[in-house]
Nucleic acid binder design. Structure first.
Lengths: 210, 210
DNA sequence: GCGCCAAGTCAACGGGTGTTGGCATACGTG
DNA sequence: CACGTATGCCAACACCCGTTGACTTGGCGC
């Protein structure tokens, strides 16, 4: 079974520092850089290893500090996970997009989002194994996918089901392509994926109920 | 975080015993019932908890024997997992199904397969977290989905990509419905899911390349 | 009836885990 | 400059893990 290779020291950028600052709801402190480094390392580890195999000791090592600091700043492993898994899908506003291009727009956005960093891979990895992770995914879906779909959905009461259908296709492709690495799914170009999936999403968005 | 509740003692049926017997490539031995009990308990635990959280001690407790027996019969945890995760999708032969009904047939079959027991949930759970599990899923996809799709695919070289697209939609719905428990996905009836997904799968099966 | 071998139990090992408390140190403030 | 506090490290705790080896039991063939 593959050992978890050591990860390069996680780079905590300005956004991370700001996030770590506001997360504590206070003005800047001397330890914000450390908090941010922990958060960045935790994100990487959770994404790469899942909740169980991502150890606090490994996260601390990546961040270059002592494990006890993690406990001091985030309480326990669950608290660290909660802080590290704040997800912003940046789902696009579809109301300004021509009706026929909305499917393609959604698919392309999420492909790019998925390839930019390992955040979503991590979310999926933890969501599948861990109930707290699953609850977080349900929250992200409800709060960030729901409104986007509802805004362009003819009948408001159909919106949740349509959103779930769209999520199933997009998540399923991400699963095959970025997590399971099924060779044919990996082999498709980004444009090919959009070409295949866009009509599906478009139909889930607008077609009559079957 | 949810503790893993104790599981009821896993029932090892005749098929399990036979499987445990043939797995060792020998004629019946006195320990076949024990081997089968271990296997059944392991399947349940891996499905419910994933690879890391499913401990050999818990599996042995469920099977009502000593942990060292697991080691004696299956070598180590990886060996146990390999023996416990032999999957048979029983994917239907589509050549006898009318061309227009193949999508619906596939979707309905996999929904039923997924709901019958927790085997596939377990496969997904382990496949997402664990490289050995992912490799196993790639093998199942290649050996059991590939041929079924190729048999009804006009151009043979397109078969793998089409199979991957179909897998992405079916796995994605299973993920949302049976693993993440997204409320709108859970709320759909089985017929509604078939009604929505069948045209998608049908198109992946037969449509011109985009 | 006796010996042999499979089947199973028991206790322990070395290591890794999350988590805790005490101690040194550098900083910001009066 | 002195003091309190935030920051960080160190060592340890109690627990659980996979795995091992020695020991006991029970059934079967000769």
């Amino acid at each position: 079974m593959a050992d978890s290779a050591p990860l390069p020291p996680a780079a905590a950028d300005a956004a991370d520092i700001r996030a770590a600052t506001v997360a504590a709801g206070a003005r800047p402190r001397r330890s914000d850089a450390t908090r941010a480094a922990i958060l960045a390392a935790a994100r990487d580890r959770f994404a790469a290893d899942g909740y169980e195999r991502a150890t606090i000791r490994a996260i601390a090592r990546d961040a270059g500090i002592d494990p006890s600091m993690v406990m001091r700043y985030y309480g326990n492993k669950e608290g660290l996970f909660a802080a590290a898994s704040e997800i912003d899908l940046r789902a696009p506003d579809l109301t300004g997009v021509p009706r026929g291009e909305r499917g393609a727009r959604l698919v392309r956005h999420f492909l790019e989002r998925w390839e930019r960093d390992e955040t979503l891979t991590g979310m999926l990895r933890v969501g599948v194994t861990n109930e707290a992770g699953a609850e977080r995914m349900r929250g992200v879906f409800r709060d960030q996918m729901g409104p986007v779909i509802a805004a362009v959905c003819p009948a408001p009461d159909e919106a949740p089901a349509r959103a779930a259908l769209i999520a199933s296709q997009i998540l399923g492709m991400a699963l095959c392509r970025y997590v399971l690495h099924l060779p044919p799914a990996v082999g498709l170009s980004r444009d090919e994926v959009v070409g295949w999936l866009a009509p599906t999403v478009q139909r889930y968005l607008t077609a009559e109920l079957p």
